[in-house]
């Protein structure tokens, strides 16, 4: 699948909500490529962009969401594997990143489109502290109920001493 076509389709439907996109193609010879496509989307059209991606082929969510922390916002990254055709080596990684302001850490669930993402969204809620709206099962996944509210294990600051 051509990465341009994905970006074009998204841009036609969502316009300026697509903030940036870049791609990385590694060639393995014999026409075999490893393609990774990064797309930044704003929060309003994030849900509809996933719905559009879903119509393009088999959409699989690959890892729980990593994040990047900036001063005023958190960039949440959704790594998807998209396969359009049944040919070999046609799966490409579509990595969607969404900026969420820190004073309003909320994002809409994608479990209505990709139900398999439920565990990942639950983990995001408990580990990073981003609230997932309309999630069908808001319980904690890994940590028990003994964890106090407002403590997010993956966002604890690194200890200076251990850096040596």
């Amino acid at each position: 699948m051509k990465t341009e076509s994905i970006v074009t389709v998204l841009q036609n439907k969502l316009g300026s909500h697509i903030q940036a996109s870049r791609e990385k193609i590694t060639n393995y010879g014999n026409g075999i490529n490893r393609v990774t496509l990064w797309i930044s989307i704003d929060r309003e059209s994030f849900h509809s962009s996933i719905a559009i991606l879903k119509t393009m082929g088999r959409l699989h969510i690959s890892t729980p969401m990593p994040y990047k922390e900036y001063e005023d916002r958190i960039e949440l990254i959704y790594p998807f594997a998209l396969k359009e055709k049944d040919t070999k080596f046609s799966e490409i990684m579509v990595i969607i990143s969404v900026d969420i302001p820190k004073d309003d850490l909320k994002i809409r669930t994608i479990t209505d489109i990709v139900p398999g993402a439920l565990f990942m969204e639950r983990e995001t809620m408990e580990m990073i502290g981003v609230e997932i709206e309309d999630i069908p099962d808001p319980r904690r996944l890994f940590t028990g109920n003994y964890l106090p509210d407002g403590v997010y294990p993956l966002r604890t600051p690194k200890s200076k001493e251990s850096m040596q």
Binding site: Y28, R34, A81, K88, F89, E91
Partner: peptide, 11 residues
């Protein structure tokens, strides 16, 4: 993944 995505010598 071995068939969908090029890794190692599988391709």
């Amino acid at each position: 993944v071995r068939v969908d995505y090029p890794v190692n010598a599988y391709y």
